[in-house]
Design a protein around this nucleic acid. Structure first.
Ligand SMILES: [Mn+2]
Ligand SMILES: [Mn+2]
Ligand SMILES: [Zn+2]
Ligand SMILES: [Zn+2]
Lengths: 170, 170
DNA sequence: GATCCTATTGCAACGCGTTGCAGTTACGCA
DNA sequence: TGCGTAACTGCAACGCGTTGCAATAGGATC
């Protein structure tokens, strides 16, 4: 995700929504069925490898690491190769189908079809994690916006620390 | 840093400060000279490899990546090996000499002798970065504390998004 | 259905760390 | 000064991604 892959702008028939990059699909209910069309409309290609990842994603919920996704794809097709999976994830992120953040250790975590924009909270003690609502993050967002004109990307935010149970220690 | 290495509690003479784990040294002015003693006092050992890293660190300022530190050590001693450097960094972090966070790509960034506790702000557009003061982060800290009893680790916090200059786009 | 163009794939190599293990060494102590 | 022990080192292998490149294959067009 450092230098994200380029996705060409839509070429032909672009029916429904404005479909700006990374804007969640208009039809949040059945985005999987529309995907092949959306992909092709952008001049991209619908391939077997992508179909498999999409199947895997549609069966996933909550947060999944990149390695987990590779693993699940490999279960469906042992010839799966990591680079293809990660590259496809980049494309899907630009289409708003997934969003990534980083765990406390910096590893990638993907969120499938985020219902609502949210950040992430990681306890360094028990390694549990929770979601931060945009309400909770609003205060920080406002400060950064007002004082620096900085637009925070909530979905990429990971806060680490210690939960109530893990108290003062680790 | 996932499973941090164990550091034995001080065994013999522990003069000055309470020296709780990761509490910045009492003498923030010349911690380098005291380090060998502090290390030995904990039952740890003062080795040539550690001396080199300390020299490198004492010449560094601001944020440095792990790879950069390995590189600089290798400049001083070509036989330097990454695992030793990273393991020593873990120890130094527990002694409060360095603190790490993660860039927007998840890679480690070390901060040497943090003068004041701060978080990090990364622009996904221009890749510049800034420090977030504890004042700015206070609002978020309070919300998490009050509503969840969660103690945020400010120094490990990285917020990404877009700076004023990089506006709406990438 | 054949053709053409370019997006995509697989591969191999790389970059950043992390980990288990066996040999080495610092250093507290007699 | 020499010993014993546990901390430390170096090595090799691994895990998670990323990247350049040449070969492959979508799919739009005719
Ligand atoms: Mn970390
Ligand atoms: Mn990221
Ligand atoms: Zn916890
Ligand atoms: Zn910027």
């Amino acid at each position: 995700m450092t230098a994200s892959r380029q996705v060409a702008p839509a070429r032909s028939a672009a029916p429904s929504a404005p479909s700006g990059p990374s804007a969640p699909s208009a039809t949040a209910t059945a985005p999987w069925d529309e995907l092949p069309a959306r992909i092709r409309a952008r001049g991209l290609r619908w391939t077997p490898q992508r179909r498999i990842l999409l199947e895997v994603l549609s069966r996933s919920e909550g947060h999944v690491t990149g390695a987990e996704l590779v693993e699940r794809c490999r279960a469906a097709d042992p010839s799966t190769v990591p680079s293809t999976v990660y590259r496809t994830l980049d494309v899907l992120e630009e289409l708003g189908i997934v969003q990534h953040a980083h765990g406390a250790d910096g590893r990638e975590e993907f969120h499938v079809l985020p219902v609502s924009q949210h950040g992430h909270l990681h306890c360094l003690g028990c390694h549990q994690s929770w979601e931060i609502s945009s309400d909770e993050a609003a205060a920080l967002g406002r400060v950064l916006e007002r004082e620096r004109g900085f637009a925070m990307d909530l979905s990429h935010l990971t806060v680490s620390g210690h939960c109530r149970a893990c108290g003062g220690d680790g």
